[in-house]
Amino acid sequence: MKTVESARTRSGDVEVRELRRTYPGRGGEPRHAIDGIDLTVEAGEVHGLLGPNGAGKTTLCKILCTLLTPTSGTARVSGFDVVEQPTAVRRVIGTVFGGDRGLYTRLTARENLMYWSALYLLKPREARLRVGKLLERVGLEDRADERVETFSRGMKQRLHLARGLIGDPSVLILDEPTVGMDPVAARDFRALMDELRAERRTVLITTHDMAEAEAVCDRVTLIDGGRLLGTEDPKTIGGWLTAYDRVTAGGVTAPTVAAMRSIPGATVAEYDAEALSLRVETDREGAVNQVLRALAEAGVSEITTSRPGLEEVYLHLIGARGLRV
């Protein structure tokens, strides 16, 4: 894993240095939501911030969006300091916060976007054009004149994205933007990310979905407990997913189980000698192939493989501490 310290000397569209955000915790002890992090997001980069709930992702986003003041350290967006120059920062950013909330539900999608366009100081004619294009871009043109309260969660998320783009921002900050999206909408979202990349917009996207991070990001930074653990390229993230595959099988005899134990990177997590059921966990790329081959050679046909969730990968990478939120 590369250290993020190397990012100190670079300059990017988003630059965070020694950033801390502390809240009063139980018993008066300070709780560090963000604990001295350094991060650089290059211009035109789609950068993922990956971590479990409570890792500090949203806190960092809120600081970058000027919604929360840091306890110490600096954060700059397009060269503007988020504390000293909040208005300048707001001119260049677009924000999308995940979830159902954040829209005027009694208004239509078009009315919502027209309203937000005014807050980005667009003239009405320009606003009408941009709103129309954005509604088309997020696939809501057919529902543009219906009230948002009738929308599904995924549709609201798409409208959130359109809202984030209404000011034509050079830096987009997306906090869990795909929460609630159905698979088709999520696929469209990935296509949209590609378009934003092609338009040379800088995107900082938080997620706890490794597959999503792998699919849309140029680089991914892992965050946990308010600290950055490192920055990786998406291929490594993909490697984590496949490295920790698990295999479950039925009709497995004891000699086959013994063979499993000899495969490097494979661990027999569970074996029921009566039911002849087996669960093998892997923690090394390629180990799963060896497990499958051994099972096939033993004549076992009842086999399934599955991939771990983020928390399980965290268990492998950083231990149980990573699950504490």
Binding site: K62, C65, T66, L67, T87, R90, R91, I93, T95, F97, G99, D100, R101, G102, L103, Y104, W116, L119, Y120, L121, R163, G167
Partner: peptide, 10 residues
Amino acid sequence: GTLEGVITTP
């Protein structure tokens, strides 16, 4: 949940 959005506009 719109206050955050309003505040982060210019």
